[in-house]
Design a protein around this nucleic acid. Sequence first.
DNA 1: TTGAAAGCGTTACCAG
DNA 2: CTGGTAACGCTTTCAA
Lengths: 359, 359
Amino acid sequence: MSQSDRSVRVRLVDVARVAGVSKTTVSDALNGTGRLPASTREHVRQVARTLGYRPNATARLLRSGHTRLLGLAAREYVETPWVYADLAYFSQLAIATTRVALSHGYGVVLLPTSGPEDCWLDIPLDGVFVVDPVEADPMVGDFLAAGVPVVSDRRALAEIGSAARETGRWVDFDYGGAVRQVLDHLEDAGAERIAVVAAEATACFHQQSVGAYQDWCAERGREPRIVYMPGPGVQHTLDAVKDLLAAPVPPDAIFTLVEVSPPLLLDTIRRFGRSVPGDLLLVCTTEDPAASYTDPPISTLSFLPVETAQVAVELLVDRLEGREGDPGRLLSADFQIRASSAFPDQRPPRPAVSPLTPG
Amino acid sequence: MSQSDRSVRVRLVDVARVAGVSKTTVSDALNGTGRLPASTREHVRQVARTLGYRPNATARLLRSGHTRLLGLAAREYVETPWVYADLAYFSQLAIATTRVALSHGYGVVLLPTSGPEDCWLDIPLDGVFVVDPVEADPMVGDFLAAGVPVVSDRRALAEIGSAARETGRWVDFDYGGAVRQVLDHLEDAGAERIAVVAAEATACFHQQSVGAYQDWCAERGREPRIVYMPGPGVQHTLDAVKDLLAAPVPPDAIFTLVEVSPPLLLDTIRRFGRSVPGDLLLVCTTEDPAASYTDPPISTLSFLPVETAQVAVELLVDRLEGREGDPGRLLSADFQIRASSAFPDQRPPRPAVSPLTPG
DNA sequence: TTGAAAGCGTTACCAG
DNA sequence: CTGGTAACGCTTTCAA
């Protein structure tokens, strides 16, 4: 009731009154501004300390015109009950965003991805990073309309139109290209029946990666084999893989688009009586570093959450601090070819930086 | 330069001027307060929309006296370069905190754990959750002194003293008890040389868990075997385990206190020529759901990040909204006994809820 | 029904 | 060197 109660909270004026000086003097003394005699400064500081004075952060913000707070929204993750899939990606992204932002002097707010209309606009943000936006994302639109700089996917910005020109910056991946790169590699390694494990989701990445797979199959007259997760959780993913393996004509390669524990996946396949890469080639979209320590090591496709965060924050900060900077950056996914998708005869695989098949 | 530029940002007065009414009317019209004729209200709204008016979040905050923002600080994780260890724990905690906070109408700010003295006080927070505080944690002290309600470990609050009485709430685990529970179980299962994999860290959990292990060993006249991670990363952890196994008298049980990928750990042990649980019992402190899907399933100790987040946020929100509520809550770690630490002869293990050995 | 004016707590600009 | 005073942009009380 005493210290913490709002009505008893000591304000700048209280310090001024007790110290027998004006508000300005207190402000200057505490902030090291102005030109005060050391004695006054010390006296005021002493009074402030004994009174337990702490400046009101909100008032400072209003004065300064900025909040040094950045929003981070992952359109799929926060709302959903509990999604282990994709967790590693978002976690790494969130932590990295936070660290990079902090190094520039900004804090990060994890944003609601739904809720009462426009509720996110009540949060005092200097800028926002919207990861994996949905189509015609209203959140992106709202922030842009409110004049809050946004970094997001270029496509989401394009849908908005003119305002984006001024305020929006983008960081993109060529999701389709990355998927094709993996598929080409698997094809080169001899795979003829490539199955894909995906999630049903409206966000950018899911839509585009599945689309690219379907196109790729269509171009070759192959039948696409997509298993959609019926729900979140490890068990569902593993069940899906088992279903795939139990098919009358099982696939000879699996490419997971959702996050699965790579060692666990390998173990499941093995217990099902298949060997990797002997019977089955395997590539996982994952951020789990464990993938490179399994036996055999697993080929991975990564969308570089840490680099993404770094670029996004820098774009945002440049924009906020009035530097021109790039309008956006195109990042390349990181495809690491390892033994799990190696050529049966150990021939070195095609170079990782293969030219992408044109659309 | 146009829409987004601060000097051109439309304010409440601008809307009032254009609509030909006063600030009050605009405010009422937009917020649904006051008693205006529907026509005025609609007219004002229309003008606001065409002008692209968005209220300034900071100004509202200053008026309302609260920010509906909660801080989350994990004293070990944010600052460190890149710690995969403990990631799952913190990620789950952060996501869960965010979701629970949102359901109460609060946003969550990930806080810097170091930086310019007191820098965290510049962020306008209604309350803070400090996870795994260090000894005599200055962050906890600062917030309490600033009159910002804190939820943290009870021990961190106790060190601060009287202010904590008013403003602090706690959520605790009996770390030592949980560690003892695992050790007792391993002993019952026949383990005589239990080794522990730990991290060097100053935070609460690490200090107490390692301390409990040492005490437990001392009580039995056993030699403690602790391997400290030389640094973060999967490789380090696996190397540490290999060192352990390569010892002249290798342990017959391993209990990891740092987060490792359970399937990967199992694989490493197996490739080293040891079987689990035949040659080696294994218990992992982890939040990775993969642990229960390996072969054999791995016994786990979990400190329930999701429940912790839930309790912490509720404590904080109760406090903020003037409800009395509990001063704190003691949670019990979740020890799941699985085949990796089963009795060699398959005898059912002692009940999970065994009485804890007194201090 | 509407509007003027008084805050919210801070910082910044000028007189004195 | 110091202290009034005016913003910052909004909400709310109180008169008209």
